[in-house]
Design a protein around this nucleic acid. Sequence first.
RNA 1: CGGGGCGUAGCGCAGCGGUAGCGCACCUGGUUUGGGACCAGGGGGCCGUGAGUUCAAAUCUCACCGCCCCGACCA
Length: 574
Amino acid sequence: MRVSKSFIPTLKEIPQEAEIPSHQLMLRAGLMRKVASGIYEYLPLAHRSLIKIMNIIRQEMEMVGAQEVLLPILTPAELWLKTGRWQKYGKELMRVQDRHSRDFALGPTHEEVITDLVQSELKSYKQLPLNLFQIATKFRDEVRPRFGVMRSREFIMKDGYSFDVDEIEAEKTYWKMVEAYKRIFKRCGLFCSPVEADSGLIGGNFSHEFMVMAETGEAAVAFCKSCDYSANLETAKSIPTVSLINEIRPACKVPTPNYKSVSEVSNFLKVSANQIIKTLIYVTEGDPIAVIIRGDHEVNETKLQNYLKVFELKLASHEEVEKITHMPMGFVGPVGLKDIRIIGDLVLKEGHGYIAGGAEPDVHWTYLEIGRDFPTPEWADIRNVVTGEACVGCSQPLNVGRGIEVGQTFKLGKRYSTPMHCVFLSKSGVEEEVTMGCYGIGVSRTLAAAIEQHYDEFGICWPIAIAPYQIHLLLLSPNDAEAVRLAEMIYDQCVEKKIEVLYDDRLEASVGFKFKDADLIGLPISVRIGSKSVKEGIVEIKIRRNPQVMKVPIAQFFENLIDLLQEEWKRCEP
RNA sequence: CGGGGCGUAGCGCAGCGGUAGCGCACCUGGUUUGGGACCAGGGGGCCGUGAGUUCAAAUCUCACCGCCCCGACCA
């Protein structure tokens, strides 16, 4: 492609709307433009990259025997009513009506649609296993779209669904898919690993998220450098450091005038926060509940929600707290708490001599013993793992970092086949429900994540496998006939050799302009041709991610180029 | 939905009661071409929308809309 004929609107300045590097660079390098909040247009460069990601996915899916289909975006409400998700999915499900006032949803995911399809055709165990996938646009009416295509309302997703005769076969399929996913992300040039995950709204009992570790990631991940344990903070476990700090003494009240928060109380009493019990009140769709947790720990609401099996969970407001506990805000504690279910974080179990709210203004209890001074709560793991705690796999210290979730795999079991009556006749002639799995990849998010992982101060540094073009050919002296002749020759030969080349043949752009654009667009290899190099009989080649410029005699140019391309490809091998 | 910020030329911004500006980009002509060139000329705006206050509103008031950030939320 000649730049003079291309649609690549690069920007010199950082658009004010963009916060994170990938978002800024996607706008600046002319990859995309915004139409509305969370809705983007993909321009030619981005489209070429997306196609490459999709093709890698297609190849790997084919390798594990999955077949591609294309499902509708507009889906009738009745399908969603069958599984209860018409209600449960909430406002994120984009609902529309047709001219007859019939309800539809723009598909955010397609379990219902695919299960309905398979249900209508599945008769015998002989048709199983079955593995179907599609690559299509999805809609989610996100509360807050963010970070460009990282969290957009309309996005491209690969979603796959597997159907097996039983749990054992389904699990085999699941692990096959996990392996395929690892290959896909590696082939896209991403450093990405599966982490244990919460299975959320989609249901099921087993899940992994594929995380690209990045500062700007929205998910918190606990991981171990010594063994391969890693998990989303929503499910992560650790061996906590237990605080057997204090001697056992009779409980006594101490004045804490106007000291309410954990940090205020610990400063005032000169104790560390891990001796304090924090009491939090949550409201749910049922009764309110109380949570007690060590002062230096945080409640993980996903864990709590899963333990309680509730849909709604919200920290109570100050007014609600006082009404529910009959204690003043800031001095709520487990002693004297009545008529409320109390969940205690497991870490508290072994400790002694705790400090907690005194149930009346300006007072805290000290030397509290669980079970002696207040009833033993229901124990559950409801807290966030903290950096430095011991790994459950190998006892080495855990790290907590941030990640971008580019894919997720779920074992669904019969979550969808039961309500949608997706059954088959088994070998023994008995009707059985099919066992399902589901597997997603955010294709547009993968593109953004790849940039988030491969950029520098000048622009993008594409992995070759998903780069819009492989070579950026820069004609630096468009008025030098010899340079033009050489550049045109190299361009023609690249086209002939099927080397994807973007040729900056612009007459009007200055040298600096071309260099800046090339750095910004970030194709893996640039080839520079100007009067200077032509006179010396050489061509300059630069690998985007390296600072040095190589000088290659014209006669050996293609030989060298092909070697360099191969080296780049090696970086994307699974 | 709660909190904060911003809407003025394609992009980045200034102006904050009295003729709508700057830099970059764009168009024409010329000179240039190894890290976002130079000279000369030129085009482009309902100052987000609507009400109000005022002799006079981009500027003050109110409402609405849009966008961004933090939080809540999130296959």
